[in-house]
Measured scan of single mutants.
Amino acid sequence: YCPACDKSFKTEKAMKNHEKSKKHR
């Protein structure tokens, strides 16, 4: 789950990829 974006991810890999993504924050 990403509190900054208020989005939840089913896998930890998806969240790690999201955190590295430029769309994050």
Rank of each mutant, 00 (worst) to 15 (best):
Y1E: 14
Y1C: 02
Y1Q: 15
Y1D: 15
Y1W: 00
C2S: 08
C2A: 00
C2M: 01
C2Q: 00
C2W: 00
P3Q: 13
P3Y: 11
P3G: 15
A4N: 15
A4H: 14
A4G: 14
A4F: 13
A4M: 14
A4T: 15
C5Q: 01
C5A: 05
C5W: 00
C5G: 03
D6E: 15
D6T: 03
D6F: 00
D6R: 09
K7V: 01
K7S: 06
K7C: 08
K7T: 09
K7M: 03
K7N: 06
S8Q: 11
S8W: 00
S8Y: 04
S8E: 11
S8D: 06
S8T: 09
S8I: 00
F9E: 08
F9W: 06
F9Y: 08
F9A: 05
F9L: 09
F9V: 09
K10S: 06
K10Q: 02
K10A: 08
K10W: 00
K10E: 14
K10Y: 01
K10M: 01
T11A: 05
T11H: 00
T11G: 09
T11E: 10
E12M: 06
E12W: 08
E12L: 07
E12Q: 14
E12K: 15
E12G: 06
E12V: 07
K13I: 13
K13T: 14
A14W: 00
A14C: 03
A14M: 07
A14D: 10
M15D: 13
M15S: 07
M15V: 06
M15A: 07
M15Q: 09
K16S: 10
K16C: 03
K16P: 03
N17G: 11
N17L: 11
N17P: 05
N17D: 13
N17T: 13
N17I: 10
N17K: 11
N17R: 13
N17V: 10
H18S: 11
H18W: 01
H18K: 04
H18A: 07
H18C: 04
H18F: 03
E19I: 12
E19W: 09
E19L: 12
E19F: 12
K20S: 10
K20F: 07
K20L: 09
S21D: 06
K22M: 04
K22R: 09
K22A: 10
K22N: 06
K22C: 04
K23W: 12
K23P: 12
K23C: 06
H24C: 13
H24W: 01
H24A: 09
H24Y: 02
R25S: 12
R25P: 12
R25M: 11
R25K: 15
R25Y: 02
